[in-house]
Design a protein around this nucleic acid. Structure first.
Lengths: 234, 234
DNA sequence: CGAGAAGTTGAGCGGCATCAATTGTAGTGG
DNA sequence: CCACTACAATTGATGCCGCTCAACTTCTCG
């Protein structure tokens, strides 16, 4: 897959004209990284933003006493670092490859220039920022109102295909340790919470694949502690 | 204080030209509300955004089983609802007056129109969204890495004046119940956590005013569980 | 097949929530 | 102005949820 094709799949550039894609491609670099590679750390000078062509990336912060807070875990077609164009010039968190893959990097200065000259791109970025803010707020709500079993269930519900009424089978996108950190809990707690969820909602677990027999029962168990209604759309 | 003056104090409109302020003022309404008044609730059609001229406003979400998650508590010169211009047309949370005051309301459509015709305003909005996102991420980190006493201390530190090396005296901006909910804890927990903080950091508490004798000791107690360095700037 | 990591399970503990009772405080009306 | 009321704030007792430490099992991959 070539670079310009990858760029044009990103939702921020979906309706962009061909010229823009080409200008961006000209300044882009594609690299393949192994699991464990750190792209940048909290406090580094922010000069690039990234598009994931393939693989998984973890965004996180580390506290002085060694704890880690995972902000998000991203995959193919997703973008990160783009929201620092108008920041203080430093990355506010770190990024690490958690599943080997290829990453495209682009200069923030180039994106900034494009945005300043392209109204519809600026508005696209505003839209994507709005979406992210709302997800973030929902995340914060979940942390304070949902218990660990519900948080796992909520994650599963959002992975489930929306429009099938048959029992979906879900494959966890990455390993359970990573998922636990993504959901803000310990691996041991995750394991126990998942089996608690199984007891309460009749899901069937086989390694990393999970079958939901009764979607209704699951969503009731989860969404009673949420401000939204299933299926989640906000 | 007249409407256009109030509008021009908002950071989003700080460098705006006089014409813009006047166009906005022409479509603005100022209202005085008492404590308890609900401006809008989660799910309402989003048609207005608001500027606080005076008083305090709580933004929050409510879950089906009655729990409440406070998103933020805002005051004079702050703006809210502006980030729904590019949303799905519905308010994603509720807003309630918690300290009586006057609020200016403006149509979102007007702001949207201005932004689409005014590049520098669009960029201003992008900047403010960036700031908000980073604050939100820090908030999420705090919830998972800081305990209740540290969260209170962190709140105090951010209220303290930055550039004095003498012992600052801080007045809590609103009552302790509300502050507890803002920090995601129960009132009883807040009370206990505050006295724990007093024991560990030599602060002196007298009702709602708090004196910090040893700023260094306080910041060490707090910021060891944070990814940032004191004084907080990111 | 063996080493190391992921995942599970158990025991124990601490932090925060909950329920309940008491004290402090501000606002109301006689 | 004071008595009354309602609510804020504190304190105690108790229980649960999730973290920590530890042992064990399962899985993965060289």
């Amino acid at each position: 897959m070539n670079i310009s094709r990858a760029i044009s799949t990103v939702s921020l550039f979906k309706d962009a004209d061909e010229d823009l894609i080409q200008r961006l491609s000209a300044r882009a670099h594609s690299n393949t990284y192994k699991k464990g590679k750190v792209l940048f750390i909290h406090g580094d000078k922010a000069e690039l933003f990234y598009i994931i062509n393939h693989g998984w990336v973890k965004l996180f912060r580390e506290t002085l006493d060694g704890k880690q807070a995972v902000i998000n875990i991203l995959s193919t077609g997703e973008i990160f670092g783009e929201n620092f164009i108008f920041g203080n010039g430093l990355y506010p968190y770190s990024a690490e490859i958690v599943e080997s893959g290829t990453i495209i990097s682009l200069p923030l200065s180039e994106l900034k220039e494009e945005i300043e000259n392209n109204k519809s791109l600026a508005i696209k970025l505003l839209q994507s920022m709005t979406t992210h803010r709302q997800k973030q707020e929902l995340e914060l709500e979940h942390r304070s109102t949902q218990n660990t079993a519900q948080r796992i269930g909520c994650f599963l519900l959002r992975l489930a295909p929306k429009n099938t009424n048959k029992c979906p089978i879900i494959n966890l996108p990455y390993d359970k340790m990573l998922l636990a950190s993504r959901l803000g809990m310990q691996p041991e707690t995750f394991s126990r919470a998942l089996s608690k969820l199984r007891q309460n909602t009749d899901i069937r677990i086989d390694g990393s694949s999970i079958q939901i027999d009764d979607l209704n029962k699951l969503s009731q168990y989860i969404c009673s502690s949420c401000s939204g209604k299933f299926p989640c759309q906000d």
